[in-house]
Computed example of a mutant assay.
Amino acid sequence: MAAGLNLQRTVNGRLKLDLSNRGLTSIPEEVFDITDLEYLVVSKNKLTSIPEAIGRLQKLYRLDAHGNMLTRLPQAIGSLQKLTHLFIHDNQLKEVPSGVCSLPNLKVLSVGNNKLSAFPPGVEKLRKLRELHIYDNQLTEVPPGVCSLSNLEKLSFDEFPRQVLQLKTLEKLCAGQNGGCKFDMVPDEVENLQHLWLLSLVNNLLRTLPSTMRHLHNLREVQLWNNKFDTFPEVLCELPAMEKLDIRNNNITRLPTTLHRADKLENLDVSGNPLTYPPQEVCKQGTGAIMAFLKQEARKEKTTKAGQEEEKGSAAGKGTNEIRDVEATPVKAARQPDIMEPAAETELERKLRERREKSARMEQQVSQQRGQTAERMGTRKGD
């Protein structure tokens, strides 16, 4: 009965049937007679439902049904005990069958962009779940039980998920990227996600990032495009593992020279910002040119600062030494300044000569003051 269907074998030897993009309004009945079927793709059609007969495909490990017009799912999906991947995003679903939370091997569940206002109880039973995509729904909170999923690595929805800050094993976090309710701040507790290597906070209203992000030592990829940053978040310069940063389409005018410390950064996208520093001709040359420019500028700043500190320290030390010289020098006749130095006098010799001359003048002034004081005291005694 399945003779007209184009069955394939995946690279892993799985039996696959791809019926995507066929304009289907229903799944052919003969599909459910292929009891050895392991991978079924019916995405991007015009399906409004999936029949209960899906329960016959007990070897099914992956079902792709996204991009249809599904308004409900059959309860029989809960009987597919070998199912590991379920993609039902971009549909019209108002609820998820409770049986989905009883799938012991489910690793990826994608139900984003539907009309869900609640999630069935028992999600905490999905102990093997690694990815959960629930963005663009009508959910008011992260489904209860999600925070107890110890293997969850990636979580996508529309508001910053404060509840998931307890998920210390989380590796990927995408929040706000699909529109809906946008947020304007990231809580300090984000530092709890020590295993996080990808953080996507695009399409929001962010202007700053918490300083606690510096503790995310495993963060390799940061996506911040389409936000409201006026200044570059300096905390990003302190992420030692950052390899990719996408901060395009903000209002940043200047990149800090300290960004050159992110020496693992290989992919930097700052397009769509009104940058004046580095100059546009540098930015157009890509990440390598930008990082080289910032590093060179940082060296200049360091040299200038060191020179200023040295000059300041020299001036302070010079004044102190002069005072000490005056206090330690016994009273004696004032010494006349040296005769004009030869024309070949070096800069160092000139400075030493000027110091000697100034010291001599100060000695003369002190001597005169002491003489005047002694004279006044003698006069008083005579009275």
Rank of each mutant, 00 (worst) to 15 (best):
N12P: 00
E310S: 13
Q285T: 09
R353Q: 09
T169F: 12
E281F: 10
E171A: 10
S110I: 14
A344N: 14
K107M: 13
L40C: 06
K264T: 06
L70P: 02
Y135T: 11
N105D: 13
T48L: 05
V326P: 04
C181Y: 11
L19S: 01
T140S: 15
L19A: 03
L37C: 06
A333R: 13
A316H: 08
L196M: 06
K154E: 12
V270T: 02
Q81D: 11
L245I: 03
D246M: 04
S98D: 10
I323H: 08
L173I: 04
G176F: 06
E189Q: 02
G55Q: 03
E153K: 12
C237E: 02
I50Y: 03
T231R: 13
N273T: 00
C174K: 06
L198P: 00
L255V: 08
S26G: 08
R261T: 11
P278G: 08
L80N: 08
C181Q: 14
L206P: 08
N105P: 08
T71H: 01
I54A: 02
V164E: 07
E297N: 10
Q166M: 12
K300Y: 11
L255R: 13
N151K: 14
S43D: 15
A343V: 12
L57I: 01
D325N: 10
M291P: 03
F183V: 09
D325G: 05
N251R: 10
E345S: 13
N321Q: 13
M291H: 02
P97E: 00
N12E: 15
P104W: 07
N91Y: 01
K284Q: 13
P51Y: 04
P28G: 02
E38G: 03
K312Q: 15
L19Y: 06
K318L: 03
A315P: 09
H195I: 07
R127T: 14
K82L: 14
Q369R: 14
L60D: 04
P51C: 02
C283V: 14
G23C: 06
V111N: 07
S359E: 14
A328F: 06
R72K: 09
L93V: 02
T303A: 15
K358G: 09
K46D: 15
G180H: 00
H85S: 08
L170S: 04
P210G: 05
L259E: 11
R162Q: 10
Y277M: 11
E159M: 13
T346H: 02
L199A: 03
V123I: 07
V100A: 00
T257L: 08
G23W: 09
G23F: 09
T320N: 02
D325R: 11
K128T: 10
L198M: 09
N114H: 05
L173R: 00
M362P: 06
K168C: 09
N6W: 05
S156G: 10
